[in-house]
Amino acid sequence: MLKLLLRFQHMDRRWIFLGMGLSILLPLVFPINFGFKVDERVQALYDSVEALEPGDTVLISADFDPASRPELEPFYRANLEHLFRQDVNVVMVSLWEFAPPLVVPILDEVAARHGKVYGKDYVFLGYKPGKELAIKAIGENIPKTFPTDSKGTPTEELPIMKGFKQAKDFPLLINVSAGFPGTREYVLQIQGQYNLKIASACTAVSAPDYIPFYKAGQLTGLAGGMPGSAQYEKLVYPDGPPDGVRLLASQAINVLNLGHLYIIGLIVLGNIAFFLTRRLED
């Protein structure tokens, strides 16, 4: 028995990889749908969007890449749906060089579904390098930081930008953040200085870092990782998605079930084997 446990402790990692692969594949082939509750932080984010009036304009900083797409794209899509459904205008920027080819087609797609007009109801001002410097510049002067939009139209000539010069002119800033530069930098650089209302959707690994900002009132809401995106989808589509819309996170969250349970099982079994074979190994 002890020898078996010893062999288990030192098993080839390819067996672990195989188990992980099956834990992800099986729920995709045979989905099991568990219900889930909405977290207080996601509810607060949803409420801060609900509190906007038709005709308001929000600033979105879309800062994610293909690696974080599964976690953040569902939120990003549901959030745009939520905003356009309320007739809220969207001004979007990006601090991640890999984001624009990813986020612009989705922005155009969701805007077209709601009959929104580019330049009047929504705009993408483009990517800006400089990380914290760019964030400070967004806080100071947006037309100076983004002299034209991504199509080359001077920012000051865009109807949607009339009366919007600084980040503080927007009633809400939504940051879809996969890391650096992202929510942490927005909070540190400009939230306190201008007393901005910022809501954040971030990767699961960043969420524990941003919870102190939420608790201190520096973030009005926080959706962390795939569970956060799924919960936001649940709030935006309480009666299920309309035709042609897929709730990506709500489907994917059930794939996480078996993956998480597999890792927990490995940790527990690994510890049992460790304690039982410790003397033998010594």
Binding site: N33, F34, G35, F36, K37, A204, G225, P227, I253, N254, L256, N257, L258, H260, L261, I263, I264, I267, V268
Partner: peptide, 14 residues
């Protein structure tokens, strides 16, 4: 870690 991992997925809540 185990509590957070279990509670983060719907299976844990169920």
């Amino acid at each position: 870690a185990i509590i957070v991992m279990v509670a983060r997925v719907p299976a844990g809540e169920s």
